[in-house]
Design a protein around this nucleic acid. Structure first.
Lengths: 134, 134
DNA sequence: ACGAATGCAACAGTTATTGTTACGTGTGAT
DNA sequence: ATCACACGTAACAATAACTGTTGCATTCGT
């Protein structure tokens, strides 16, 4: 796979699950469907579990299933669970000397955070059920 | 620097230029302000020049300056000039066997493109002049 | 007890990006 | 004409992030 594969994998898996919410799936099954590795699946889905979107059960009849109603899970939930931050940069380590430069740096950071928030807002308008049914 | 440095560098430089559009700047000056290397600056700004946002002049009194009015340059112009594509993945190389899987793949791709377009639309609402003056 | 599944650590391979050096090219000043 | 200056570009090393993979511990149902 390539760039943005985490988001793509998560979206694909959740949408698939939304079609039959009661069924429990193993990471091996999901990996098969997604063309990747079970460990990769567990890594990505682990974040979604930590965010309360999925449940995972160990043991013989274990596997993954949705923790909430498909209608209540938005793309924003997924995006935030994965901690992507596509727009806003993590940290500014430059620290310019000139105060004008410093102010401009802060403005650029501020703008990027606004854009990021707009993106999250937009993602919040679509649920994984809609992805499947569109 | 780190992730998204191209967009950050471009935004910062253009906003800075918007404050004094007549002044011509060298890549060395810009690199100094941005805490990076002149070659990196030329690489990033070269894309903006190819997109018609900047002009560059060689020679003794050469340098970089805005090719258009600051009010007419939006963040979408910058984003598209850099060919970022943060959301939509470039290509799906998986090609699932099951037709249901295939349809789901296309839907996920379609959704991601819609989100990408929403992002561009949002970016188009802000000009580099606004970044500076906000 | 055994098999099946997740959880997690460790590692190699790949890719993208950045920083850097070097050199060619064009342009204005002298 | 010569020189200094600045861009244009190629080549390379260093770094970072991510993926794929293997291995092993743990947990749970049969």
């Amino acid at each position: 796979m390539k760039r943005n594969s985490r988001l793509s994998l998560a979206l694909h898996t959740l949408s698939h699950m939304a079609g039959d919410p009661n069924r429990k799936r193993t990471s091996a099954d999901i990996a098969e469907h997604s063309g990747t590795n079970p460990v990769v699946v567990r890594r990505v889905l682990g974040r979604l579990r930590d965010a309360g979107l999925l449940t995972s059960e160990k043991g013989h009849a274990g596997g993954w299933s949705l923790a909430r109603e498909p209608d209540s899970i938005t793309l924003a939930d997924v995006y935030l669970a994965l901690d992507e931050s596509l727009i806003a940069s993590g940290s500014e380590d430059h620290a310019p000397k000139c105060s004008v430069e410093h102010a401009l740096h802060r403005r650029v950071s501020s703008i990027m955070k606004e854009i990021e928030q707009s993106l999250v807002d937009r993602l919040g308008e679509t649920t994984i059920s809609e992805v499947r049914g569109k």
